[in-house]
Design a binder for these strands. Structure first.
Length: 517
RNA sequence: CGGGGCGUAGUUCAGCUUGGUAGAACGCCUGCUUUGGGAGCAGGAGGUCGUGGGUUCAAAUCCCGCCGCCCCGACCA
């Protein structure tokens, strides 16, 4: 193991995926300095390394929102309790995980600063778990005519869901996200919007995060509270479990009715607009980590890497140092001129220490420059990862990641190398998912796979059960319907009707079942 | 909410059973030697031991209360 050095590795090593997948994930988050626990239960601190990735992800998403006609706005953090209560299903769905503000003042009592009991709010304020109700309350003022539609708004915000159990990035009490809230004159238009934004999410997942996803609809039991239909993208993590990576909901007229929003149509009729809402969160950071990283640390796709390449100078004596640093500076400048983010690591540390650190932090490319390179006019390029080959030793793989290339050629090759690594990561993730995907027709096969040692994966199975049957599957196998895939999402041989593996009833199409985060 | 664990230096932890001057490793700072896969030596800085009370000549240690965090499970748009 690369990280097992010099015997006492307690403070240096991280758990391997094979040993303890869950611990491995936590180790990466911590050691790559992406995030850490705060003093507040369930709330994390996103550190600069992690936030830089989130910012790039935000940019990719935001550009696409703008390109599809949306604009950004901002609504309050606090939602009056009565607003949340307006849509019954919605309120019930979030009731168990709300933070509530009940007072507005502190007071020194018995020498201690405490909540002033006399400052009780007339109406409690809920810290938004999602913003449909407060936004639609505002839309009431903005929508009167069909000419006001469609209304296409997105908000970047933090939300709070008082989860019983939290995990860094994957489920935290407070998290960052974006939530799009749109209003449309017709159902068809709103449904089209729901699909369009799901497509945007799938595009970002695959082509920015290099993370393949299945696009589909949620079953009734997994639907967003208040939605008519919930669409989602589901990704597979390296342990075979599913992670819901984004959702796009068709809300029908539920919120318009709850907030009494109506508009006059072209025909002069008073109508309720149709709504959508869609969101992705900092959970995507967890997805990114668990999709690509290895036992040496984070692997970050070039499109999201805050640093594309790190330059590590190598020298012995002062005169060597001066020459090497001069060359390193030039190399950095030339790469930056190509639009790459390059870091010169000239700290007074041994090169090996820097290698381990930047590998842990997931920088795609390392460039070593030493006296030998100056002499030969070459650069040493070391990729963060190489596609695994069967039967290959670690030493062999390490060698394959490293290449000595003539200076000009090396510099010219970097942009293409980034594209290549981006593509390889997607391919690698696709292959991994394919290895853990099965089209199954019997409960016996299903049971064997999910009760086996490796937790199964994505099972494409025929399904005609209802909520009760879903719960039965959850109890027996800890699996759930991740989604009912959209047309075009089905792998070869999985299309068409069949019979439900549990009930034996006829089924129109297969669904994806898996264990989930 | 159930089960388990933990709160002592920046971090990870030892010390607690059997009360008696606050410890280690890593990290950090300084100097010298080093630098192509986690450097070595020497010196140094750094802690009201989570919190409130009790027992005692004396409490990190024993007793009682409280608070907080982590992990596993239940739950989870």
């Amino acid at each position: 193991m690369a990280q097992q050095q010099g015997g006492g590795n307690e403070t240096k090593g991280i758990a391997t995926r094979a040993e303890d997948y869950s611990q491995w994930y936590l180790d990466i988050v911590k050691r790559a300095e992406l995030a850490e626990h705060s003093a507040v239960r369930g709330c994390m601190v996103i550190r600069p390394q992690g936030y830089a990735i989130w910012e790039k992800l935000q940019r990719e998403l935001d550009d696409r929102f703008k390109a599809t006609g949306h604009v950004n706005a901002y609504f309050p953090l606090f939602i009056p309790l009565s607003f949340l209560a307006k849509e019954e299903q919605h309120a019930a769905g979030f009731a168990k995980e709300c933070a509530v503000v009940t007072h507005h003042r502190l007071k020194s009592l018995d020498g201690k600063v405490q909540v002033d009991p006399e400052s009780k709010l007339e109406e409690p304020l809920v810290v938004r778990p999602t913003s449909e109700t407060i936004i639609w309350n505002q839309y009431k003022n903005w929508i009167q005519s069909y000419r006001d539609l469609p209304l296409l708004i997105n908000q970047w915000a933090n939300v709070c869901r008082w989860e019983m159990r939290t995990r860094l990035f994957l489920r935290t009490a407070e998290f960052l996200w974006q939530e799009g809230h749109t209003a449309h004159a017709t159902e068809a238009e709103a449904r089209e919007e729901t699909l369009r934004m799901l497509g945007v999410y799938a595009d970002v997942a695959e082509h920015v995060m290099a993370m393949p996803v299945v696009q589909g609809a949620k079953s009734e039991g997994e639907r967003f509270p208040g939605a008519v239909e919930s669409l989602c993208i589901e990704a597979m993590m390296q342990d075979g479990k599913a992670l819901q990576a984004g959702t796009s909901h068709f809300l029908g007229q539920n919120f318009a009715k709850a907030s009494e929003v109506q508009f006059l149509s072209k025909e002069g009729k008073l109508e309720y607009p149709y709504a959508t809402s869609w969101g992705v969160s900092t959970r995507l950071m967890g997805a990114l980590i668990m999709t690509h990283s290895d036992d040496a640390g984070l692997i970050c796709p070039p499109k999201l890497a805050p640093i594309h390449a790190v330059v590590v100078p190598i020298y012995r004596k002062d005169d060597e140092k001066a020459k090497v640093l001069e060359e390193a500076g030039k190399v950095c400048a030339e790469l930056r001129a190509k639009g790459l983010a390059v870091k010169l690591d000239d700290r007074d540390l041994h090169p090996g220490a820097k290698y381990y650190e930047w590998e842990m932090k997931g920088v795609p490319l390392r460039i070593e420059i030493g006296p030998k390179d100056l002499e030969k006019g070459s650069l040493c390029l070391v990729r963060r990862f190489a596609i695994e080959q069967e039967g290959e030793s670690e030493a062999e793989q390490r060698k394959r990641k490293k290449s000595f290339v003539a200076r000009a050629e090396a510099l010219a090759s970097v942009p293409a190398l980034m594209d290549e690594m981006q593509a390889q990561l997607l391919e690698r993730a696709r292959n991994l998912r394919a290895r853990r995907t099965r089209v199954l027709d019997s409960l016996a096969e299903f049971e064997a796979w999910f009760k086996g040692e490796d937790d199964g994966g994505f099972a494409w199975v025929h399904w005609a059960g209802g909520r009760a049957e879903e719960e039965q599957m959850a109890e027996r196998f800890k699996t759930s319907i991740r989604c009912i895939p959209l047309e075009g999402q089905y792998p070869a041989g999985a299309e068409g009707p069949g019979t439900c593996l549990l009930t034996g009833k006829p089924s129109a199409r297969r669904v994806v079942m898996a264990k989930a985060y």
